[in-house]
Write a protein that binds this DNA or RNA. Structure first.
Lengths: 224, 224
DNA sequence: CCGGGCCGTCAAGGTTCCGTCAAGAAAACC
DNA sequence: GGTTTTCTTGACGGAACCTTGACGGCCCGG
């Protein structure tokens, strides 16, 4: 499951690409201009960014430069301009790859695989500690009082989403969508079950949680 | 000072490229066919490889695959063939980038800069020990309680991937992709077989592993 | 005071996943 | 060319996991 941010102002192309990418099990977010691209990148922390250089509000190369001030996430540039100068400028600004339009979808997919294959192990997903809990997002490991805690895949997934947005409220529907998919946005009973299991494994007093907090009627929050 | 291996059978083009690259302060070695490319790569340990796919003695994609069995050195492919299939095959075999001929020299230089910018910093501690195990990643050798353990190529490859990311979870699909290639991401039975074999050779009690740990539903982890 | 959401808890199917074994196919070796 | 090693594939029991439904407590408004 790779989270992908697609920055493309042509909504027809954006939709077509998003559909194809999703069938290849990418989790796709779409941004339509440079400003929202920068915002989305910092809030949703994608694993890879696909960026069209021709944007309505700002120069694509400047978008790359801004991103590179704080993240190493692979950036693959799409462009209708096939000029040498654009390629060199984009690559030197920090892009990882450059694909000229028109391109084949298989080529884009192959370049995506190549990009994420060599992606540096993420350092911008640090180790989060809270009380006697230590949660290492990169290593997918949880310790409580120094001892490894065994989580099931779904338990881990739920915890991961909450910890990634630690301190902020995660709406029930958001959580369900990220873990189980858009079709499960109303299965709130899943959350009750899994939050209970996580509390049993992680909280000192599961009936009075201090880290996995319920916001009644809204959602859940991880409290560092 | 970057050491660069140029694999190109057209001697006119090879000479022209070598001259240009040297003026940009690359240290260039030239190989004229796949066989010498593989030899040179292992003897001179270049920092980056530029590879023409059209070689007299063997298929360029096979050259990539051979290189990728033992090194992560960035590979940039040059090719006169601009076909989708060639690109996808080369990238999936492990190439980092693909430049179609004719290309501008500035583009190639920019892609070289991009490739070495994101190159992983060299491993400084290639010998990993865990309990009575000693694993030498550079020498491809494993000892248990001082005695050499004999591993098959695939067993070693699996162990290598796990040990490189020691302590962190390696997802099933990641492991399959790195060892067998992207087409095998769902062949989870391979993992079951090879993990069992590795445990039989490396673990004190293979049915209760302490180093090669299963994370049910997620993947495997090497525990130092 | 009582009913309806909402949440936490529990346990029982049913499904998926893992370890194990074995045997045939392919590759490497001599 | 024959032998040995290695890889691939299938099957199966058991374990781990997900889903689902039911029940009770709590809070709030009627």
């Amino acid at each position: 499951m790779t989270r992908l941010l697609l920055v493309e102002d042509d909504s027809t192309l954006a939709r077509a690409l998003a559909i194809t990418l999703r069938t290849r099990s990418y989790v796709v977010t779409v941004a339509r201009d440079g400003g929202s691209a920068l915002r989305d990148a910092s809030s949703s922390r994608p694993d890879v960014i696909v960026l069209d250089l021709g944007l309505p509000d700002m120069d694509g190369v400047d978008v790359i430069r801004s991103l590179r001030t704080w993240t190493q996430t692979p950036i693959i540039v799409l462009s209708a301009r096939d000029g040498q100068r654009d390629k060199v400028a984009a690559l030197d600004a920090g892009a990882d790859d450059y694909v000229a339009k028109p391109f084949g979808i298989e080529e884009l997919l192959a370049r995506l695989r190549a990009a994420s294959r060599r992606a540096a192990p993420r350092e911008d997903e640090p180790v989060v500690s809270a009380g006697d809990l230590v949660i290492d997002l990169a290593a997918a490991r949880v310790r409580r009082a120094g001892l490894d805690v065994r989580l099931t895949p779904t338990e881990w997934h739920v915890l991961e989403v909450l910890v990634r947005r630690r301190g902020t409220l995660v709406a029930r529907a958001d959580l369900l969508r990220e873990v189980w998919g858009p079709a499960y946005e109303r299965q709130t009973n899943y959350l009750r079950v899994y939050l209970a299991q996580l509390r049993a494994k992680l909280e000192a007093d599961p009936s009075r949680p201090t880290h996995l907090v319920t916001e009644s009627g809204l959602g859940y929050r991880f409290e560092p």
